[in-house]
Design a protein around this nucleic acid. Sequence first.
DNA 1: CGCGACGTTGATTTGCCTCAACGATTGTGG
DNA 2: CCACAATCGTTGAGGCAAATCAACGTCGCG
Lengths: 195, 195
Amino acid sequence: MEQYQTILGNIERYVQLSDDEKHKLTSIIRTTRVKKRQFIVQPGFVCQYRNYIVKGAFRVYYINNEGKEHTVSIGVEDWFVSDFYSYINQAPATFYVQALEDSVIFQMHYDDIEPMCEEIHALCQYFRLTTEKAFAYSRRRVISNNSKGAEERYQEYLEKYPNIANRVPQYVLASYLGISAEFLSKIRARPLKKS
Amino acid sequence: MEQYQTILGNIERYVQLSDDEKHKLTSIIRTTRVKKRQFIVQPGFVCQYRNYIVKGAFRVYYINNEGKEHTVSIGVEDWFVSDFYSYINQAPATFYVQALEDSVIFQMHYDDIEPMCEEIHALCQYFRLTTEKAFAYSRRRVISNNSKGAEERYQEYLEKYPNIANRVPQYVLASYLGISAEFLSKIRARPLKKS
DNA sequence: CGCGACGTTGATTTGCCTCAACGATTGTGG
DNA sequence: CCACAATCGTTGAGGCAAATCAACGTCGCG
């Protein structure tokens, strides 16, 4: 049970679970070790799990029809990563989800966790609240992308997620920010402006 | 009760509600008429309602520090509109939510609907499922914005939402697609390519 | 009618991309 | 433990998509 403290602790920041509910939940959790550069989701396959990152880092990305990579999200400890569209529709994925480091994840299978959301009200609440939060933040990102210059977006990210920015390869960060790796390099070389 | 069929019908596409639950829910709904160009959310004020559009159209937008408008979302019948970040955190809004036509909305106050999500499991499920869906789609939009040219984005939108595209002013659509009104005009003037 | 909201069109500018070549660092097999 | 290849980052020249600025149609409404 102690091994699941990370995720249980995270859940209990939003809702309360009885001991019985905790057991039910942890009983369907599968712990998986993933090596750097390995994929846990690939285009064409259905994303079957909600993946909770216990240790490590992942990126979600896709390759457009000109062959260029676009990072959709970057996740570290205590985040969920998946091709969410694929997961909720149980349809083939369009994204890759790849480990950026040797990692450990908790996997909850669609067929196990979705019925459990029917059964356990608190669990449903947890996912509702966290998804609403993620959704609200994702809107902010759309805005940031559309209304700000590349340098400003980079500075903003640095301020908000300094640890992540220095943990992932630069070309991943660049493709997340929607700019080319070369241009990000040039931005970083620029003389610092007054803060 | 019949007056609430639009929203109840929408909810029942996802979950089942007992008659008692329907009454509880509709009892907290407030029907509001909104005139074209009127605001239901403004920066600085807390967004207190989940707003369900019964009739009409709205846009959610914000003004960046260069004074330019950026449309975050466009909603028509059966959609929810709000400054979602403001709503879930009950913090001052940064967005405007404005009627594009004379409209009718159902408003559910935060203090009424949130406790009801604790109480009524089906309602919680409904919001969980719809938000997850909205979130998954919003990711697709991020991608579309970052990996495609302006013309392609416009054509895509036309195909997906032909009714909306012809219903809202062009400058609103332009600011939603992340391009200038002038440039959208030029795209539309372009000779049609082979489809 | 006349004004404000919306759309168009053209000239010019610019932020960022592309391509190409070159360091620096890591890691891996002989 | 070294050699060589990946992997990742840097730098510069040139190009293009889209922004900006400015002026001018057009429609609908008070």
